[in-house]
Design a protein around this nucleic acid. Structure first.
Lengths: 71, 71
DNA sequence: ATATAGTGTAACATTTATTTTACATATCCG
DNA sequence: CGGATATGTAAAATAAATGTTACACTATAT
């Protein structure tokens, strides 16, 4: 069925960017820390807009933060 | 306020890919044609998963289909 | 020891995306 | 003309993302 899944590198990117906390990232992206927590934990994936905002916080190309990978 | 906005090139890409209809794209992406119509008309933006699926239908890099642009 | 920061999680409410059904219009072809 | 195809749109329902509030756990610092 769902042979592709969405993955992200948020956790790694947070630490690569001055050990940014979930709350800092949340504030910079304009959401709550629970939302960042849930996305990191892959409980669900962000909206397209939030995904773009997160990539922008890290100043990274979109596909460097989110990937749509097989299995 | 929202100084950035999400844009997409779905309409152009449909025609560049054999004049694919909204319904064809919808079926290949696993959604209804009304969803594709709404996204093309920018009534709302797709979920991250659907955005990835659409880029995959066109075999295009993600940022070639969706952009987060200023103004 | 206790206070603080960072994190995981959960229930409930609200907002947004998507489906379903349905109707309207325009074009193209017989 | 009449039928088929592609598109725009809308209301109501469901699903998914996000907010709010709250509690628990760990580590670290005072």
């Amino acid at each position: 069925m769902g042979e592709f899944q969405i993955e992200n590198n948020i956790r790694v990117l947070r630490f690569q960017n001055g050990e940014m906390t979930q709350d800092e990232l949340a504030q910079k992206a304009g959401v709550t820390r629970q939302t960042i927590n849930a996305i990191e934990a892959a409980k669900y994936s962000p909206s397209l807009e939030l995904a773009f905002k997160i990539a922008k916080v890290f100043d990274e190309p979109f596909e460097n933060v989110f990937q749509y990978t097989k299995e």
